[in-house]
Design a protein around this nucleic acid. Sequence first.
DNA 1: AGCCGTACAGCAAGCGCTTTCTATGTAGAA
DNA 2: TTCTACATAGAAAGCGCTTGCTGTACGGCT
Lengths: 348, 348
Amino acid sequence: MTVTLADVAARAQVSPATVSRVLNGNYPVAASTRERVLKAVDELDYVLNGPASALAAATSDLVGILVNDIADPFFGIMAGAVQSEIGGPGGRAGGERLAVVCNTGGTPERELTYLTLLQRQRAAAVVLTGGAMEDGAHQTAVAAKLRKLTEAGTRVVLCGRPPAPDTGAIALTFDNRGGGRELTEHLIGLGHRRLGYIAGPEERTTTRHRLEGHRTALAAHGIEEDPRWTVHGRYDRQAGYEATLELLRRDPTLTAVVAANDTVALGACAALRDSGLRIPDDVSVAGFDDLPFSIDAVPALTTVRLPLAEAGARAGRVAMGREDAPVGGIATVRGELMVRGSSGRPRS
Amino acid sequence: MTVTLADVAARAQVSPATVSRVLNGNYPVAASTRERVLKAVDELDYVLNGPASALAAATSDLVGILVNDIADPFFGIMAGAVQSEIGGPGGRAGGERLAVVCNTGGTPERELTYLTLLQRQRAAAVVLTGGAMEDGAHQTAVAAKLRKLTEAGTRVVLCGRPPAPDTGAIALTFDNRGGGRELTEHLIGLGHRRLGYIAGPEERTTTRHRLEGHRTALAAHGIEEDPRWTVHGRYDRQAGYEATLELLRRDPTLTAVVAANDTVALGACAALRDSGLRIPDDVSVAGFDDLPFSIDAVPALTTVRLPLAEAGARAGRVAMGREDAPVGGIATVRGELMVRGSSGRPRS
DNA sequence: AGCCGTACAGCAAGCGCTTTCTATGTAGAA
DNA sequence: TTCTACATAGAAAGCGCTTGCTGTACGGCT
């Protein structure tokens, strides 16, 4: 039914082997022959059979990208950057590669299942983005999977995720701890002493590291933290809204609210406004990530910019072997404090 | 090196055929045998070879999702919804499928290349999201490709994209025209007579349809449009910012600005604010799509809500053959006008 | 007792490509 | 001119799986 290599070979009056070589360009073929083959390919509208090719060559042109939430620009930006570098259509170098963006929804099972699926497809590389879940059993399982993948020749890159020791995976880690500390220090520097913190879901490295940075800053300045000042919630707007109301209920004297990320911060802003509080006059707000929309908030959000696109692009290049892995297989990517209108001196 | 079906068969003391049948569950196998096989699979940590399986069975478990910009939540939301329905990990029914989200960047070449790549992988289904480019040659090429795909048994679904006649593709189209008309009528109803319009990139169906809806509304109310009132630009914040300044320069008496989508509208808001204009007191602003962040703008954005997640989910089900295609292969998905704080009566 | 239907299990032929090894023609070297 | 070397092209052996067809046993039938 469909056109095969043999059909093309017949039409071009050459052997299938030659057609394969023309298509792969990895073996000398006389110019005249090549032309004849290419013409036949064109005339027959031939499309290579990917699975067959992958089977025979024992390699595939699939690259997997795992994200926690594809609808979240945090991941979208990284995924897009990775994709732009893996040489897919539009990419520079050679072989066209297909980027597979897999949405784990932040659940351990789906993450594992997708890794297996990618392993099954003999993916050329896998990039895992964003924080990891801190469930012991799950972490072990993922580490084992990653080791299997690297052993099978799949390049594994972690982007914005803590290193996975002894797995052969290369890590480009975000300095969430440092960013969190810097952000809170900025607030402390402005005079804040009573700071609420809206953390992300528990059992997530990102959540924990950012919170640790925050606490380090508090401790460094001799501020004793009140347990009521921390609330956990999802990484979305509504969680930020509700957490802020809760925070206000617990301690109406807070002068600043630090959110786990920008989306949460936006929810916090809405809650403050709905509570009749002005930003930053009554309460300062800070986010994390510096997603594109953060500058559009009113007032613009003070946050920590993470170079998502740059990190993603680098992860893509490393995954394609187009850039050397960092020494030790681990690189730390720092964030940059962006001071904007949502933070100011506390009301006296 | 790696474990194969034969290894499992040897260990379980059965033939490879039996192992295959156990794994696929499409042929009667005695319970005791099945157990033995499953145990061997587990012990050997066997992972099926996807390409080999796809080659032999002439089918694959890949589903392609084409998006114009993966970093844009508009597409992220749809892609996520599609993915949640195609039975990938976490999905209900049977075979695990791998969703391949491909980022075309809105360029014709990449769109075509990705379709070829998907065709090469013998994808089980392909979902194209978002507006199409209106380049004659390109449209013909895409249509030809889609026809090839459907002929080869790949299910093709267009989600938020105009129908592609005679290709066998099923279309779930957004009523951009109707939404655009309704939005502008709302503004006209408030008393606006001088409305600026920030359109998306030219040669895009989405851009054209929304603009047509806008003009239809104007015409229906006897408002003669000034050509200076329309500016084209990219679908991003910066384009909205610049276009708004341009609009203001051309005609400072405008009382409303309608943007091609919410992201652009946010840029417009920023430009208006920076120009010292209040929203909606001095100028009303309206967007399109109702992305999650739109309600967080200050004031909240008046816009047209598109049921992105619902449409994506439906597209996913149709692609998997889990839901019947709409009659005639075409369904129109309507938007819903969301009136919020960014629109009000014009200053008198 | 003899037959047949049913329920499993195995054999073996591919699926469409890649790649090693071999064959051939031609050009330069001796 | 004869031999060697190189540049190409082809033959054929798989890659690891699926599946149609062919056994083989066993139980129920007549």
